[in-house]
Amino acid sequence: MPMLTVDVWSPKGGSGKSTISLNLAAFFAAEDTSRRVLLVDADAQQSARTWEARAKQCGLAPAFDVAASDARADRYDVVIVDHAPYAPAVAASTLKSGVVVMPVLPSFFDAASTIRGQSELQAKDRRVLLLPNRVETAYASDLSFLAGFVGRPFIKKRKAAYQATVARGLTIFGADKSGIRGLNEARAEIERVVSSLVDLAAA
């Protein structure tokens, strides 16, 4: 059995699930090169598999495996599952682990939907890490939104670091010579997410 399985899910599409899933898998693979890491692409958009194809086009070998299902998950040490967005009631029966990362965008409607989803999952004994994503700390409205997440990790809107790496078949942990701005800051963000995630899994 995997030592850690993490579901990345949101009731809202476009929340950044796939980018977060990709970089979580990349972190665990980079932290220990002997660790077997699997990224399960369970989203109909097939973002992770599209990224894998792009990496291969660029002559790159991903540091972790990407698959359409978790049929062989027992062969891995860490499994990250990128889920499609759907109703929380469905999610509770579909998610594989007790630990769920839920990206939430800094808007009223996204937050309301995500917090409802969190409550329903927690009622099913899932441990949930709400993760504010694409936050603009120069905006007063986003800072006000973050006030509800004091002491918790969040991800700033770093288009260069996150989107440019994906477009090149890279991750933020595999782009040392790419010249992309903000890599160190983006890595620190994901490292804080992992720290909170590991604490939550151990709770």
Rank of each mutant, 00 (worst) to 15 (best):
V79R: 02
S144R: 11
S196I: 06
Q46Y: 15
T165M: 02
E185M: 03
S93D: 12
R134P: 08
I190D: 03
A53P: 15
R127Q: 14
A48Q: 14
Y139T: 07
A67P: 14
Y76K: 01
R35N: 10
V99R: 03
A175K: 03
V166R: 06
A92R: 11
G59T: 13
P85N: 04
L24D: 02
E31I: 04
A55M: 10
E120S: 07
R49H: 14
V135F: 08
P2K: 00
L4M: 04
L121F: 12
T114R: 07
A203E: 14
D110M: 00
Q46R: 15
R35S: 08
K56A: 15
A167W: 11
L146R: 05
R152P: 11
K156N: 10
R75Y: 13
P132S: 05
V198P: 13
V90N: 08
S119I: 11
V104S: 00
F108W: 12
P88T: 04
F27K: 02
F109R: 07
R187L: 01
Q46G: 14
V79L: 01
F109N: 09
V37K: 05
R54P: 15
L39G: 10
A147Y: 12
T5S: 05
W51Q: 01
A42T: 12
E185F: 04
L146V: 07
F154C: 00
E189W: 03
S141P: 09
P103E: 07
T50N: 13
V40N: 09
A87L: 09
P2G: 01
D110N: 02
A55V: 14
Y76L: 00
A186K: 01
R187K: 08
L39Q: 08
E185W: 04
A91P: 14
K157R: 10
E185T: 05
D199W: 06
R181V: 10
L39E: 13
R72C: 11
K17N: 04
V194S: 02
Y86I: 05
A73K: 11
S18F: 02
R116H: 14
W9P: 06
N184C: 03
A84Q: 12
D77S: 03
N133Q: 04
P103G: 04
E31M: 06
V66M: 03
